[in-house]
Design a protein around this nucleic acid. Sequence first.
DNA 1: GCGTATCGCGTTTTT
DNA 2: CGCGATACGC
Length: 737
Amino acid sequence: MTIQRSFFDDINTVSEVDLSGLNEAQYEAVTTVDGPVLVIAGAGSGKTRTLVYRVAHLLEQGVPPESVLLLTFTRKAAQEMLWRAGQLINDNCSRVTGGTFHGVANTFLRRYGSYMGWESGFTIIDRADAEGIINLLKSSLGFAKGNKKFPNKRTIINMISGSINKAIDLEDLVYEQYSHLSEFVDDILTLSRHYENFKFDNGLMDYDDLLVNWKVLLEKSPEVRQLMSDRFQYIMVDEYQDTNHIQAEIVRLLGAEHGNVMVVGDDSQSIYSFRGADFYNIMRFPKVFNNTKIVKLEENYRSTQPILSLTNDIIENASEKYSKTLFTAIEGKALPKVYGGRDEQDEASFILKNIQQHLQDGIEPAHIAVLFRSAFHSYKLELLLGSEGLEFEKRGGMKLTEAAHMKDVLSFLRLLVNSRDNLSWNRVLLLLDRIGPKTAQKITAELVSQADPFVALQDYAAPKASQAVIAGLAELFQKLREAEEKPALLCDIVLEYYQPLFEKLYNDDYPKRQKDLEQLKSIMAGYETLQDFIDDTTLDPPDPVAKGGEAAEKIVLSTIHSAKGLEFDVVFVMGLAEGRFPHGSAEFGEQWEEERRLLYVAATRAKRFLYLTYPRQMMTADRQFRRVGMSPYLAELKNMNYERIDSANVFSRGHGSYYATGKDAGDTTIKSRPAALKRKKAGKIKTSDLSVGTRVKHPFFGEGSVKNMSGGPSVDVLFDRHGIKTLHLDYARLEII
DNA sequence: GCGTATCGCGTTTTT
DNA sequence: CGCGATACGC
């Protein structure tokens, strides 16, 4: 057996786990075998290492591998961890179980779905499909199209699924977040009700449905709960700050019998609240599990002291955090550098030059990363890197399976697994000549109402214009159903049919997209069943084809969210300008704080060199240049913690009409805050300000009186005109009258 | 009423 | 680059 990771060199067998390399806190966490443990860990403190060593230690104590369950946030982290664990234990041992919450929920529901009375199974849809549903519903329910004020689809999705996670009444959430869009709020509510029905009627489930159903099953069926907790005697959860209420409930239910639960998290790295994550889960953990042992990991094993000082400075300004003081023994003198480029082009050039320098100094491309808030912020840099022949791998943004042409092909395949999949029927029909949205919807509705949609398609009395293409489609499905059920083979048949449509549809750029289709084929070749393929690619979409050679050898361009948990020798955080970071629509308060943590996550990825850059001018939509200041988070930092680069020193040649004055007037202070920032929650009401009977006023529901107080942050209010509503005081803009 | 072609504008973050 | 609006033709 070859051991590839140096820190496992000393551990070959389960009977000999050498824990001498661990620090005191890690040792304590690793060797606490029984009972609940909460590990509060700083960035770069060796969380994964601690978890893996604990697995090793458990096995050493004679715990069978199959009774250990590892839950992590990303599938890649899960795979990495299992692989490492696999290195620790003998190859002959059966493996430890692990994966993402969603992945495990999927496996679990497919096995025990019968307890829920499901006969025909389900298909998982991703967020792109979910957007498709919103589209369909919007048009079929006749909502005004093109109204600019209507929140975008992604936001609606986040609201609809987020409402389940936050366990807050959807209505309140919508009214709170979109109070400025009063005339559309009812539309959104109508939409959300149809959305739920639409999914369940057609055997479609999204990420959140998987979790909700897992939780419900554990709650409702003592038999299943017993099965699970007998099997998994030891539960471990990584990135606990990213769990939502449902996930925390699942952990509670799984661990209720034995209490052998260990969770690891860093509240300063909580960046997923838009999706329902709540780092208060960490604070609550000791209350949920009695006798919780709390261990803090404060030593940083990643970054040099100057970088650590800067990142500590970033988070120091946070309004709320578990106090941790990170320290490191790693030597290094390079101060983080801050650079304000003249414009986006100049910012990109700065990054390019420095990347080239580091490459020259012998740093591997894969150990260099450029991070940004939104996927499109790197466009300029991508072009520049391309023109210089530097290869890169982009993470975040659109996924391979979200591209239009990929969804086309997947729709055919999805139908083979779930013939009631409304969305896929619609998509497939839309590809055909002479069939538009209206016709497609009509046919779809007819097909899914029949016992066998494929037979119904063959028998469908199509209008003259589309008779031929419908017959062609029916023929394709007949061929597919008769074919041997090998995913790669099915893919071939679909692609053969799709090719002419494809070339016509994406006439201008189909050769570029063709590469994706070929990649799809090779991915599918690795699967035994179509169901597995669809589940896998939906839960963990493959990355788009990297530009050039092997992925491992390239510079990484990534959204900060997608860089979570990773580390690089050199990190550039770009686009740190007013309006870009924090994101323009982030409101002062909770959202503002989350953006700050996001910057913290970005900066803490750096091991040796850290650069923070921003453009001082950006192009607006109408091709006007607008001067922008630096991100307020940068402005807050102490000067001693970074070195300011004067642009004139960096570019001595090759930039033509470049005027570097070195002066940054207006950069160091925030001159004009957008209106939204000033709207700091004026006098937020606390539970203690209210009692039963207090008269209150709400911007939407109007006046009412407090009816019931649970003791938590929620109160029930009986409104004069809207009846009883449960309001969350952190969100509701209530006034006492 | 429906399908197709074309143009211009704006882009959060994701398991 | 994708999406919505708009115009035109069947």
